[in-house]
Design a protein around this nucleic acid. Structure first.
Ligand code: SF4
Ligand code: SF4
Lengths: 135, 135
DNA sequence: ATAAATAGGACTAAAAAGGTCGTATATATA
DNA sequence: TATATATACGACCTTTTTAGTCCTATTTAT
């Protein structure tokens, strides 16, 4: 119910791997999927999403691969989750996640404000932790 | 991805309602499902689970219903989640949730210990918050 | 006896997550 | 310039989880 998705875990494992690589060396999706026994296609798509959000930089073609776009301590856990799953998925409640009254109980719900406080705490945790802390 | 399930939300709304009821009065599942527009059957099962775990006390038969088993400040959010969804669902990773190597990446996974630290923080949050704080 | 309540299992439907496939594009280098 | 190796990305399928329904049993105040 609070589980990080496999995509997030794969993304973090990959980022950790890329971060701990010797300077300048690109890392390919295949290398990572082989080393950690992750589905290549799935990992590839995760890395593509991280690329689109500017967390890593990709080089196409032969000798291509990925490097970090910025230092590990500049990549927040919340950035990674946002890039892979979208901002909505970091929130505890659907009414926080989706824009309006996605929840058909919204008007009578008595717990949304109390839960929002917990949400803040969780947000702070995910904003404070960076990739440098998982290397 | 971090969403609380509807069951948890329904449980919290119900507990809040029961907690704010005038002393001694039992509350029925029907009252709650009507007032907050929640599926009666689903709510009923949630309340049954809360009863089984000793969070609320049930009275059967006519004039039956539910009261809190202990004071609101003695009911932790983690108790509620545990009662409704089971202990495993409060954890960020499957390897924490399920007993052994539920995850087929476990041996090569490089992020489980870093994530365990985040897990601790999350656990503290859910252990610290009680029903009295959502009333 | 009856009506109003909880108890709880079995089942179905809907949504989310996980994973695969096919094809396009870029590029180093032989 | 042909080729092999890499990323890019959408479409699709399968599995798992969540949400919700239905039915029947039991308890108990009146
Ligand atoms: S309105 Fe209440 S029940 Fe609905 S999503 Fe928000 S917190 Fe949850
Ligand atoms: S071993 Fe790693 S990938 Fe597997 S569940 Fe644990 S943290 Fe997640």
């Amino acid at each position: 119910m609070l589980h990080l998705s496999k995509k997030i875990e794969y993304g973090l494992i990959a980022l950790r791997h890329i971060a701990s690589e010797v300077n300048g060396c690109v890392v390919t999706a295949k290398e990572i999927s082989d080393k950690y026994h992750i589905s290549y296609e799935l990992l590839a798509k995760v890395l593509q999403k991280l690329t689109r959000e500017g967390i890593i930089i990709s080089y196409q073609g032969v000798k291509g691969g990925y490097i970090l776009a910025r230092k590990p301590d500049q990549i927040k856990l919340s950035d990674v989750i946002y890039a892979i799953e979208g901002k909505s998925n970091i929130s505890l409640m659907n009414c926080e996640a989706e824009k309006p009254e996605m929840c058909n109980i919204f008007s009578t719900c008595t717990i949304k404000y109390p839960l929002a406080k917990i949400q803040d705490i969780i947000n702070n945790v995910f904003n404070d932790v960076t990739i440098s802390e998982i290397v």
